[in-house]
Simulated scan of single mutants.
Amino acid sequence: MKKIKVLLVDDSAVMRQVLVALLEREPDMQVLGTASDPLFALDKMARDWPDVIVLDVEMPRMDGITFLKKIMAERPTPVVICSSLTEQGAETTLQALAAGAVEIITKPRVGLKQFLKDSSAALVGAVRAAAQARVGRLTARAPLPVPPRLGADAMAEPPGSQAMVQTTDHIVAIGTSTGGTQALERVLTALPRVCPGLVIVQHMPEKFTASFAARLNQLCRLEVREARHQDRVLPGLALIAPGGRHMQLRRSGAYYQVEVLDGPPVNRHKPSVDVLFRSVAKFAGKNATGIIMTGMGDDGARGLKEMAQAGSETLAQDEASCVVFGMPREAIALGAVERVVSLERIPAEIMRHAARR
């Protein structure tokens, strides 16, 4: 079995030890080495180039973002950001995602033993996802034990036949994961100010989604913000599900709104695309378009199938433009997708479907 070669770059000696212990117990992973800053890392990489880099962003001599940009310009390599869970750190980490990193794992400033216990499966999964990522398109043992995998039933009842008849209101629901931060930026910045209301799940840790939405809001003509409980879904507004919370669509009288709720992880994610898509199927039906984009795993595939069965139009991002084709592939295999389109075509498809209403 070919092993995933991983380089760990972090200025904390304790954190390096924790990460080495975590990854080296995986039979499909090999830690090539560790480095306390990017300059030491570049020395090691000259001798043996890794498949995946696990990178802190706040380090001496050269910060992680400068290092990341250098790597992406010279030899694009999948990078997993391992960053402290702070509001200030979130903004820096999002700059790293914009520069080409594919995943975020949050680390605590204290309590590393608990981190090893609580986040080990997430980090291992992130490294495996990164190893599959095609970063050039951005500009035999089971995994560690994880909680039982729950489906959307854990948060919402099946759609049934409660969706309202077709109205002039149109909802666009988007689900994405690995590579999605860059993909969403390209889609949302291409949309005009007057566009359908959007509800979006991007797999992202708590505290990062607010900064992510604020960054997109600065770049886009439409308004983008992190969703709040009972926010209305309005034309020209994109609501992004908060990290660590599920988001569901509801119909309230003559308009749509979102519910932001706690609950168990669904498909091991919170927020979950399946939870959002199921609620859109139930309450919007023919008034909605569902789009599943780049990401690892199958979160969203079943929910998109329920949307299609409720009369929604359903799209998947094509393999050529995905960083990881897992989520779209699973939705296509399930028969949930009407059309497969490139990333560049998605904004036009959103506006075309809305114009037909």
Rank of each mutant, 00 (worst) to 15 (best):
M204A: 05
M204L: 14
P205M: 09
P205D: 11
P205A: 12
P205Y: 04
P205Q: 11
E206W: 01
E206P: 03
E206R: 12
K207F: 06
K207V: 15
T209R: 10
A210K: 14
S211Q: 14
S211P: 07
S211M: 09
S211R: 14
S211I: 07
F212T: 02
F212P: 07
F212A: 04
F212E: 00
A213P: 04
A214S: 13
A214R: 15
A214E: 12
A214C: 02
A214D: 09
A214M: 08
A214G: 07
A214V: 05
R215Q: 05
R215G: 00
R215P: 07
N217F: 03
Q218Y: 00
Q218C: 06
L219F: 00
C220I: 05
L222H: 10
E223L: 12
V224Q: 13
R225I: 07
E226Y: 07
E226N: 11
E226P: 12
E226A: 08
A227F: 05
A227Y: 01
A227D: 01
A227V: 05
H229R: 02
H229W: 10
Q230I: 01
Q230S: 05
D231S: 12
V233D: 01
V233R: 01
V233N: 00
V233S: 00
L234W: 08
L234R: 15
P235E: 10
P235R: 14
G236H: 10
L237T: 03
L237R: 11
A238G: 10
A238M: 06
A238L: 10
A238F: 13
A238D: 08
A238V: 06
L239D: 01
L239A: 11
I240A: 03
I240M: 07
I240W: 10
P242G: 14
P242D: 15
P242E: 15
G243S: 13
G243R: 12
G243N: 09
G243Y: 11
G244P: 10
G244S: 09
G244K: 06
R245I: 03
R245M: 10
H246K: 08
H246N: 06
M247Q: 12
Q248W: 04
Q248N: 03
Q248H: 05
R250I: 11
R250P: 00
R250N: 03
R250V: 08
R250K: 13
R251E: 02
R251C: 07
S252Q: 15
S252H: 14
S252N: 15
G253N: 05
G253V: 09
A254V: 07
A254Y: 02
A254W: 14
A254I: 09
A254M: 08
A254D: 13
Y255C: 04
Y255Q: 10
Y255F: 09
Y256L: 05
Q257H: 08
Q257V: 01
V258I: 02
V258P: 10
V258F: 00
E259N: 04
E259I: 00
V260W: 04
L261G: 00
D262S: 13
D262Y: 00
D262T: 09
G263V: 01
G263M: 03
G263R: 04
P264K: 09
P264C: 04
P265S: 03
P265T: 03
V266A: 04
V266K: 04
